[in-house]
């Protein structure tokens, strides 16, 4: 059962990055869209992600629940030492979620719309930034359980070049995913062209940000780069992801919506997969080497057993209905109500 739970955990993280990430990305794309096209772009965003918006964000909650039920020491270690970035991320989640709905459901369309838009776009940026910062801090090895000062205990673990470079990388990934997704949804030529350009732009940004992550890792003395390229498995994975870039640009040029989406999803999954492969089973790298692994943190016995069953049974209900939801709204666009 432990493995079932671990598979669900990894799956939830991946799906949150892909689906939730694309949602946040829509705000990032909006941020770099020329002002005169933004109104149209918002319409498309709303139509395409409106119906599945809620469901996309459930993956985060599933992740959290799996952590606190199945791996309580991971959950508590994160919440104690990464309290501040978690708080900032939460503020982003609130701002974004509410602004997205408020701007659509406000019965009067007036100046408030400007405020919603500002909140929406900036919190779409902040949330993945801090999500990445947290991810970076988890593997950065700067969490110090014996810290005595406030700075060492609660700031240093995440306030460093490496974490922030991972944050920017995450932002770029989300924007990239969204642009690829939206390209497929836009019907008008002009908008489609804009999205395609942005997808390319953000793809380049992602590659550059990835490079920065490696440089930052070197500066902070984290062996990430070297270890990833010396291990044959991770090397192959990363090469595959890079090679698929060529395909991506090719299909973007040809407007093939399914192909581009699959490849973009593939690339992001590969990056996560390489990292997961590299660190597994460690989940949090702690200063001094007392790493917390998925094995050592698991609440073995009945908690994991019942959690596993709950997830399996839940999956039986959720996955078909989710697929049906996405399928229904792909088939036929909803009118905006």
């Amino acid at each position: 059962m432990l493995y079932v739970v671990i598979v669900f955990l990894c799956l939830s993280i991946l799906l949150y990055l892909l689906l939730g990430g694309a949602d946040f990305g829509a705000g990032i794309v909006e941020l770099i869209t020329p002002v005169k096209l933004r109104e149209k772009m918002r319409g498309i965003t709303y139509q395409t992600i409106g119906p599945i918006w809620e469901a996309n964000h459930m993956w985060l909650i599933i992740t959290i629940v799996i952590l606190f039920v199945g791996f309580p020491s991971i959950y508590t270690m994160l919440s104690v030492h990464l309290h501040i970035p978690l708080l900032l991320m939460l503020l982003g989640i609130i701002g974004r979620g509410t602004a997205f709905i408020f701007r659509h459901y406000d019965a009067v369309k007036d100046d408030m719309q400007r405020i919603y838009n500002i909140i929406f776009t900036y919190s779409s940026f902040i949330t993945p930034l801090f999500l990445g910062v947290i991810a970076g801090a988890m593997v950065g090895g700067k969490i110090d359980t014996e810290a005595v000062t406030f700075f060492e205990g609660y700031i240093r673990p995440w306030f460093n070049y490496f974490s922030f470079s991972v944050g920017l990388f995450t932002v770029a990934i989300c924007g990239f995913l969204a642009a690829v997704y939206l390209t497929g949804e836009a019907e008008e030529k002009e908008i489609k062209g804009v999205f395609t350009r942005q997808a390319k732009l953000l793809n380049v940004a992602t590659v550059i940000a990835g490079g920065i992550v490696f440089i930052a890792a070197e500066i902070e003395g984290i062996q990430l780069m070297r270890e990833l390229v010396t291990n044959p498995v991770t090397l192959v994975i990363l090469l595959l992801a890079t090679a698929s870039l060529v395909l991506l640009w090719h299909f973007l040029g040809q407007n093939k919506k399914v192909h581009t989406r699959l490849i973009a999803g593939f690339q992001v999954s590969m990056i996560l997969f390489a990292l997961g492969f590299h660190y597994f089973p460690d989940f949090i790298i702690v200063q001094g080497g007392n790493n917390i692994s998925l094995y050592s943190a698991a609440a073995l016995g009945k908690p994991i057993e019942t959690l596993g069953w709950a997830l399996l049974i839940g999956g039986v209900f959720i996955i078909p209905s989710l697929v049906y939801l996405i399928y229904s709204f792909q088939r036929e666009r909803p009118e905006s109500t």
Partner: peptide
């Protein structure tokens, strides 16, 4: 945690 994991569903 049991109710919370079911609640997720």
């Amino acid at each position: 945690g049991m109710p919370f994991s079911l609640e997720g569903t």
